[in-house]
Design a protein around this nucleic acid. Structure first.
Lengths: 163, 163
DNA sequence: CCTTGACCTAAAGTGTACTTCAGAAACTAG
DNA sequence: CTAGTTTCTGAAGTACACTTTAGGTCAAGG
């Protein structure tokens, strides 16, 4: 294993080794490559070889996913990492700053919505129209392909009975 | 339209009318029925007829989805609504209480993770193992079908270089 | 009565994030 | 060198939350 490690370090990590180090499935790493999140080279036999810095790239991907960011968004932000040189701590800190800001505003939006929930659920406005919970904020659930037209139509002609 | 409305009220809402009132697509309402979130009856011609209280049911579904709850979870919680009588404001308040609690703890977890982000991203632990961001909390991203084995394996034999 | 629009069902398609499978080539240990 | 493990590719499968399509029925206005 020790000798093994030494070999790996010389010629890049195999996909299996990277999977071990990150806890990801091998298939997930291949998928992330297809999504442009890592860019391994190939050895003589056509097998993928990764740099040690890819451990960190993939770790970052995992963290960002935990926070609910989509692969598209993660790819977008990671494209700001340096291309030529190996990213250093400052590079990582910089892009995580960006996530942090987005995260902050999402947490805040969620809190505002939560606060409105109390006032809204019991009231008639839940039957729609002008309810603050509808016309408001970015939803926690921003991705997706629903109708997304979310109101704007005519006003209720009758009082909000307790239906 | 006024006369139309009067007719609708006598014999229940058509799926199109319900779609108009909620902003949902007709297809979405059919889907929600198949998922057990609404239970329309059928008229003589086999068409769905909804109660006025279904406007509120679906509105609740939409709000819960905005907060990121899955259909399965929403169905689970809505099963606590009264079966026999039309749910009233107190009923709705009670089940939204439950969501509120879940929401609170999810917001709190997100905040704790966010706070750890600052300390974690720049450091070597991002390369895995004992990092607080990994072994911790319920992920915002709890559903899903990934590898989910997320660490627990051997310790790094070398210091966390700035890769 | 007839046309038009709303509605019906079942099946297939969409996007996200992956996994699983099949068959073949590469690599590693003994 | 051989056996066993890894890795390779492309295609298909999975889960969630719906939408779209196709082909047919129902209902309301002129």
């Amino acid at each position: 294993m020790t000798q093994n490690n030494r070999l790996r370090l010389r010629s890049g990590l195999s996909i299996g080794a990277l999977a071990e180090r990150t806890g990801l499935a091998v298939s997930a790493i291949r998928f992330y490559e297809s999504e442009g999140l890592v860019h391994p080279w190939r050895n003589a036999g056509g097998q993928r070889r990764f740099e040690r810095s890819d451990i960190r790239r993939l770790s970052f991907v995992m963290i960002a996913q935990k926070f609910g960011f989509s692969i598209a968004r993660i790819r977008e932000v990671m494209q700001r990492l340096p291309d030529r040189r190996t990213p250093n701590a400052a590079d990582w800190r910089q892009i995580s700053e960006e996530f942090r800001e987005e995260l902050d505003s999402r947490i805040a939006a969620l809190e505002r919505m939560r606060d409105k929930l109390d006032g809204c659920i019991g009231c008639g406005c839940l039957s729609m129209k002008a309810c603050a919970l509808y016309n408001d904020e970015d939803k926690a659930h921003e991705k997706g392909n629903g109708p997304r037209y979310l109101l704007g139509d005519e006003v209720a002609t009758r009082p909000p009975a307790q239906d």
